[in-house]
Structure formats: C-alpha cells, structure tokens
C-alpha cells in the first residue's frame, strides 16, 4: 500500500474499500470483518474511508468511527506498516519490559505512540499479549517475540528493516 496516501486516499483504493464492504449491506455484525480487511489496504481509517464503509454497509458513519476508536488495535490516526505492540503488563514489567522498550525507542528514534518517518514502524503500548510464559514479549503484525533483552529487540527490528521478515 502507498503510504503517501495519508491525506488523500486514492480513488482506486476507495473503490476497493467499497468492494470489500458492499456484500455486507445491512449486516452491521460484519463491521469487524470489514474493518480488518480494509485495514490491510488503507494507510489509516480517515474520514474518506469510514464514509465509504458506512455508505456501503448502510450504517451511520459515526457508528463506524466510534467502533474503530473503541478498539485499541485499530487506528484512526497514522500508523506504520509494522505495528510493534510492546507489552506493558506486570508479568513483562517485572522481567525488564521497560529496558526493552527504551532500547526499541532509541533504536527507532521514536517514542511510544509515534510512527517512524518512513512509515515503517509504529511503536504502541499494549496490555498483556498472552505470552507471559516468555516475557518480556512483543507482538509485531501477528508475530510474537519473547524472552527479549535490550539487545535482542534490536535484532528483531533489524530483521524487518532488512526485509528478512515480511
């Protein structure tokens, strides 16, 4: 996907969004599925995007927006290609999550909540990701990394920068 599209989503992308949402007209219970599929092709859920989803599914645009803003893994703002969920809950916390986080911040040159300039990474805080048996753990686009140290977290990120991991 083209991340220069932040401010103005291309017409062709919006057509694609409409194609995803249209089969679920008057089926509001499919909103999560639609949103998760649309997420793969848009840089962010801007008002243009939510308007198309609302129109095609025949639900109010405010409902789409309020839905997306409720769930922490969905973003109404800018986000990178890879979202790095840094677990902050106690089991990770007492095993050095803070040092891992600081190392990642320093390596990427951004703070938690921010996105790198090349739109590659977003660093996000996350409550427990359910892998405390290998804490401290992080989650990057559905992949879990555990038993991290300030050094090893950098290696993980490097793998994405080099393109070793997709």
């Amino acid at each position: 996907m083209d991340r220069t599209e932040y401010n103005q989503v291309k017409a062709s992308t919006l057509v694609e969004v409409a194609r995803i949402a249209a089969p679920y007209r008057d089926k509001p219970e499919m909103l999560m599925e639609v949103v998760l599929s649309v997420e793969e092709i848009v840089p962010m859920f801007s008002s243009q995007v939510t308007a198309v989803i609302a129109r095609e599914m025949n639900i109010p645009q405010t409902q789409v927006y309020s839905f997306i803003s409720f769930y922490k893994m969905l973003y109404t703002g800018k986000r990178g290609k890879y979202i790095v969920h840094m677990c902050q809950s106690a089991p990770c916390h007492i095993r050095g999550a803070k040092e891992v986080l600081e190392s990642a911040e320093e390596f990427l040159g951004i703070k938690v909540g921010e996105t790198t300039e090349d739109h590659m990474f977003t660093l996000a805080y996350s409550p427990c990701i359910g892998n405390c048996d290998i804490s401290p753990a992080i989650l990057i686009n559905g992949r879990v990394y555990g038993n991290l140290t300030p050094e090893s977290v950098r290696d993980v990120l490097k793998g994405y920068i080099r393109g070793e991991v997709q």
Partner: peptide, 11 residues
C-alpha cells in the same frame, strides 16, 4: 478473549 494479564492457558 483471554484478556486477563498473565493468563496464557486458553492460548
């Protein structure tokens, strides 16, 4: 949903 921090059993 296994959201309770520290819980991994359902996984």
């Amino acid at each position: 949903d296994e959201g309770e921090p520290g819980t991994n059993k359902d996984r």
